[in-house]
């Protein structure tokens, strides 16, 4: 029995590690550094990082209070609302891209509104941000909602009895106590947005985020040219991921 479990677990692990390891092994150090120095690659990685971060921050500001409402309040159709939050996770991302494009293209209200303040969503960084946020926001909302739900409600009530306004209770009690989950949700949202391809490629082929660049190099030049870009991108992502995790766990330690 135990042997079967270990064997099965090993297979799953191998399934994840083997292709990645193969890709790393197939990329020589020379190729790696050459690719890392490639202006187009560097520019695309930079673009991917800042758009996904901005998507997380902008939409996080709206998503966090919303997550608190989901955790604390009962309202009609709450189940439906919760289900809607998860929709972006389950629909094909190319379909999500089509939906967003239809929503923000120049002949729509949103598109015209954006244009009037100088924002063009199609084939631009704002469009990329929208597409990334659309597919990644469930990760933040769900994590933040769970974080708020784990804050004992009596602490919030105690703060109210002590004369704090609801807004002060939110900022001084609920938010700091749910912060751990929120940060971890933000990291997940950011990582998910950064790795998005399907939705972004439809809204904005150019400027090219790295997943699109990898796809383009693969289509135009083949596997050997796409692979080093993928390896460099994975390294950058992992480095950021580890760094953020370390920072947030350091914060936890300081708190407790």
């Amino acid at each position: 029995m135990r042997l079967v479990f270990v064997l099965l677990g090993g297979l799953v692990l191998l399934f994840i590690i083997a292709p990645l390891a193969g890709m790393f092994i197939a990329t020589s150090p020379a190729e790696f550094f050459e690719t890392a120095a490639d202006r187009e690659v560097a520019r695309s990685i930079g673009l991917t990082l800042w758009t996904s971060m901005l998507a997380t921050i902008i939409f996080g500001i709206a998503a966090i209070p919303f997550a608190w409402v989901l955790a604390r309040k009962n309202f009609p159709l709450k189940k439906l609302v919760s289900a809607i939050i998860d929709v972006p996770v389950v629909i094909p991302h190319s379909a999500a891209g089509i939906a967003i494009l239809g929503f923000v293209s120049r002949d729509t209200v949103v598109g015209r509104l954006g244009e009037s303040v100088g924002l063009n969503f199609v084939g631009s960084a704002p469009g990329i941000i929208l597409a990334m946020a659309f597919v990644s926001i469930p990760f933040l909302v769900n994590a933040a909602r769970d974080g708020f739900a784990a804050v004992p409600e009596r602490l919030e009530k105690a703060a109210l009895v002590l004369g704090a306004s609801p807004a002060r209770v939110f900022f001084t009690v609920s938010l700091p106590l749910a912060w751990r989950s929120i940060v971890s949700g933000m990291i997940m949202m950011w990582a998910r947005g950064m790795s998005e391809f399907g939705a972004v490629v439809i809204v904005a082929y150019h400027p090219m985020i790295t997943p699109v660049l990898i796809y383009e190099r693969f289509g135009a030049f083949g596997l050997a040219y796409a692979r080093p870009v993928a390896v460099v991108f994975i390294c950058v992502c992992l480095a950021f991921f580890v760094l953020l995790r370390m920072l947030s766990s350091k914060y936890d330690n300081a708190e407790s």
Binding site: A159, V161, G163, R168, T172, L177
Partner: peptide, 30 residues
């Protein structure tokens, strides 16, 4: 918050992310 009552529960409802000073000062700062 406008009632003018204080409430102490059976189990601690002290704010775990604040010091004892921060806890006692909380309503005063509010």
């Amino acid at each position: 918050q406008k009632r003018g009552v204080g409430l102490v529960f059976q189990d601690s409802t002290l704010f775990p992310h604040m010091s004892v000073y921060g806890n006692i000062a909380y309503p005063l700062v509010s």
